[in-house]
Design a protein around this nucleic acid. Structure first.
Lengths: 351, 351
DNA sequence: CTGAAAGCGCTTACAG
DNA sequence: CTGAAAGCGCTTACAG
């Protein structure tokens, strides 16, 4: 690889002039610029950005720590990060923790991998990344995972209780509210909910959204329509079966993720009920499975790409000396209903 | 951030000694090492690896170019790359091209994005990555996409016709052979095949594998059992319907991807046929959808993690001066059958 | 408009 | 065992 010195020699100028030709042509005459550029192209010279970084003390690199890139939410968040990073001419150093392989399903207990995270951030810092984006595999509290760093870090698909940390997530409350509203708009009144693990803050938020929608439309909340699940298909099946065999059978079920909705499908075929004719069903997440079911599942799509975008926007903004914008400390992006085939309006007569 | 100079001053030694303490303690006395390390820890000093890289001319960075990280195969390949990279103390600079957003479904025409690739490799080279791994979104010929580089590049989930390029893919022929063998082992003889686009080399290989398995077991290849698909669900449905309504209905269908297998499910329910009782079905890819179908689909799992691992192994090996191992130019990794619920042995009486 | 020179934060022969 | 010094490949005030 050629260096700036060699280019200078070949072009019969100083290294300073070569540098100006590349970075600030206004400082030299058009003539010499052309002369320099000719040899730059001839030798296909590419400046060593490592050397440049050392000098200017900027790397244009951001570190991305993913808890587990094989989890469904992560690739699209990275996609969004990359999109925005590219716009601002930043590049990404990726550190994928492989949480599942490392500690199995025990991801709630963040203390189990603070060590790895400490090492990872340390490496990232020594590589002089200008900021870090942390991408959780599941939305939960990760306070204390990353020590206070001299560079900004923004948390995505998870949150912390530290003053000053930026987090970017989606709005669980609003999403559940809108999903329920949608069902109500389709004339459903007997709307059951299959929740995830009750310990989850997300789950709590969604329940509230569900209840608010009911309340607003003056439909009484029926506790029997609230079934506690655990995010797994089996739980959806069990809950679905109970719901569908109860005396006061709901006309619609809102499963708090697409996987549990799959379990409801199972229960429905077992009981000989047709979706959406006999039961409307709505999921959450818009995972690949949601459009693999038959009929295709109507569901709430997570704004994953936007989360990545926004997180990067926030990070890069906080990197610039005069911050252009003031972002909220905790962004909650809007989910979008994707209408497919699993919901049908109830005819007035069926009410 | 503290520098080695400050540490040296605080510890009352030269910068050389600090460097030795950190990198080659054998060169200094245990006593001074301890003295240095004490202040290193006190100030939480982290060497600037940018500066180190400039000096030692090694970055321990490998560039990973993904055509599209949102495609199902890519995250797990990255996972495998990261695993192996971490072992060898390498780090990853990720460049995600976002091919779909960029050029839509036109990915076959690689000329449409050689420009982006040229820029991307250029950036990667100027960042002094020591090698590049290219991850295709679809397995196809990408000859000419990347110009000859002074650093090694290994291609994954795609291939080139250039002498000397390393490629890592999976063995389509063997996978199809084994899937068909499996069906035959379950006493099936009327085994239909739904192919992908016939232009695809992968598809050709799989057809050969299918035919070899039949031949070996002396079951005559019936051209009516070969339906040309296009990887999409609709095609699986059409092919499935034709097959299942034909006079000589097959007892088993091998769909060359999980998505088309979904279409076969559709056809089966429409015709009132039960899987696996009335029809055994096997897919390919082991995507999320495959275990979302009901019953869960038996399928061939792609060795994605291994592909990432192997590619990285090869790359890093070719980076070391004395190459320890001699890897084949074109690796073809083995797929693994994952048995689920969509295949049933045929009873002897049904033959 | 152009060049000589200092310096970014490290490592590593070399001398003592 | 330890330190002074050169140098990796750039950029950028500064002088001319």
């Amino acid at each position: 690889m050629a260096t700036i010195k060699e280019i200078a020699k070949l072009a019969n100028v100083s290294t300073a002039t070569v540098s100006y030709a590349l970075n600030d042509p206004s400082k030299i005459s058009e003539e010499t610029r052309a002369k320099v550029m000719r040899v730059v192209e001839q030798v296909n010279y590419r400046p060593n950005s490592i050397a440049k970084s050392l000098k200017v003390k900027r790397t244009n690199a951001i570190g991305v720590i993913t808890e587990d890139i094989t989890v469904f939410n992560t690739p699209e968040i990275i996609n969004g990060i990359g999109e925005c990073a590219e716009e601002h001419n930043y590049h990404i150093i990726l550190e994928n923790i492989r949480l599942y392989k490392r500690i199995g399903n025990n991801y709630q207990d963040t203390s189990k991998f603070t060590g790895v995270i400490k090492d990872t951030t340390s490496v990232l810092m020594s590589k002089q990344v200008e900021g870090i984006i942390y991408v959780g595999a599941h939305c939960r509290d990760v306070t204390g995972l990353i020590d206070k760093t001299p560079i900004p870090v923004v948390y995505t698909y998870c949150y912390t209780q530290n003053e000053g940390d930026y987090t970017v997530n989606y709005d669980d409350f609003l999403a559940a509210y809108e999903a329920t509203k949608y069902l109500i708009g389709m004339n459903h009144r007997k709307i059951a909910l299959i929740t995830g693990l009750m310990g989850s803050g997300q789950c709590q938020e969604r329940i509230k959204g569900y209840q608010k929608a009911l309340y607003e439309s003056q439909v009484l909340f029926n506790p029997e329509y609230l079934k506690v699940g655990n995010w797994e298909r089996e739980a959806g099946y069990e809950a679905g079966k109970e719901l569908l065999t109860s005396v006061n059978r709901p006309t619609a079920i809102f499963a708090l993720n697409d996987v549990m909705a799959g379990g409801v499908f199972d229960a429905a075929v077992e009981l000989g009920l047709k979706i959406p004719e006999d039961l409307s069903l709505i999921g959450f997440d818009n995972r690949e499975c949601s459009y693999s079911y038959s009929p295709k599942l109507t569901t709430m799509a997570l704004p994953l790409n936007n989360i990545g975008n926004m997180a990067t926007e926030i990070l890069i903004n906080s990197l610039s000396k005069q911050k252009q914008k003031n972002f909220p400390q905790h962004s909650k992006l809007k989910c979008a209903l994707v209408e497919r085939e699993s919901v049908m309006p109830l005819l007035k007569g069926e009410l």
